[in-house]
Simulated assay, not measured.
Amino acid sequence: MKTSSLSSLARLNHPDREVRLNNLKALIQEVKAGRIPEPPKGIDVNNHIHTTFSFSPYSPTCAVWMAYTAGLQTAGIMDHDSIAGAREFIEAGRIAGMATTIGVECRVDFQDTPLNRRMINNPDQHSVAYVALHGIPHTRIDDVQSYFAPYTRARHERNRLMVQRINAITAPMGISLDYDEDVLPISESRNGGSVTERHLLFALSKKLIERYGKGETLVEVLTKQLKITVRSNIKWLLLDSENSLYE
């Protein structure tokens, strides 16, 4: 990825929402002034875009910019168990002149239905399906967020239990995760975002890299100490310690 592109992503992923949106305004002005080429518009649509309000390298503002530069006709936010990033996504779409939709994705238990024990659309679990709620009215954002509040609390409890299990495995290595200190800060939980299993693994990866560094030693720790099977394509990425996107 070019340095200029990484710089744009950093500006659009700034911790402050208003700064992100203002940086998007500046980029769009650059496009209008001809200093940044205007992307050709295609016919494609993506109404299932995750952001940092669940797990993604892109803030809602950055996600809209990426959709804009890809020439999409329409973009839609679709985070797990949270619609807290919707208003930023809508505003970013307005700035970029792009139509947007908002939604939320959740996992649904089908154990008490004829689909019990069937693989539906979740590759990791039987009887559980991912369900996407598309086209939520802008006037119902707060209602939807309130509806998912109990699930958010339950997810936090579940995450804390998973952290305990991770720590039981990594304790002999001298590695321990703290949910409040290591996991929550790398999420948008403080702004209503959800915390997923990926956040736990991201926090763990940071701890592993801090202790063992990048490259061959880390691969050996994963395969020999943690007994993880690392596919050849993943191993190749892990050995590339100069990759700017490592972690």
Rank of each mutant, 00 (worst) to 15 (best):
M1E: 01
M1Y: 01
T3M: 09
S5L: 12
S5E: 08
S7Q: 12
S8E: 12
L12N: 02
P15V: 08
N22S: 13
K25R: 15
K25W: 03
A26H: 07
E30K: 12
E30V: 01
V31S: 12
A33Q: 13
G34P: 06
R35C: 09
I36Y: 11
P39Q: 12
P39C: 07
K41F: 05
G42W: 12
G42I: 13
G42L: 14
I43N: 15
I43V: 14
V45N: 04
N47I: 15
N47C: 15
H48P: 03
I49K: 00
I49L: 09
T51Y: 02
S54P: 08
F55P: 03
S59V: 02
T61N: 01
C62T: 08
C62H: 07
A63G: 10
W65V: 03
A67E: 10
Y68I: 11
G71Y: 11
Q73N: 09
G76W: 14
G76E: 13
G76H: 13
I77E: 01
H80Y: 14
D81R: 05
E88S: 00
E88W: 00
E88M: 00
G93N: 08
G93M: 05
I95C: 06
G97Q: 08
M98H: 12
A99Q: 12
A99F: 06
T100K: 07
T101F: 03
G103H: 06
D109A: 14
D112N: 15
P114S: 10
L115D: 12
L115R: 06
R117I: 03
M119Y: 10
M119D: 08
I120R: 07
I120H: 08
D124S: 14
D124K: 14
Q125N: 11
H126Q: 13
S127Y: 09
V128Y: 11
Y130E: 13
V131E: 03
A132F: 10
A132C: 14
L133I: 15
H134R: 12
T139G: 03
R140W: 05
I141V: 15
D142K: 01
D143L: 03
V144C: 04
V144W: 08
Y147S: 07
A149C: 05
R153T: 13
R155S: 04
R155T: 09
R158W: 12
R160N: 05
N167C: 03
N167R: 02
M173P: 00
I175W: 04
Y179A: 06
D182V: 01
I186F: 00
S189V: 09
G193N: 07
T196H: 10
R198G: 02
L200R: 07
L201H: 05
L201P: 00
L204V: 00
K206V: 02
G213R: 05
G213C: 09
K214A: 06
G215D: 04
E216Q: 15
L218Q: 08
V219Q: 10
E220Q: 15
V221D: 00
V221M: 01
K224C: 02
Q225Y: 02
K227C: 08
K227L: 11
K227Q: 07
T229R: 14
R231W: 13
R231Y: 15
L237N: 12
L239G: 09
S241P: 01
Y246G: 01
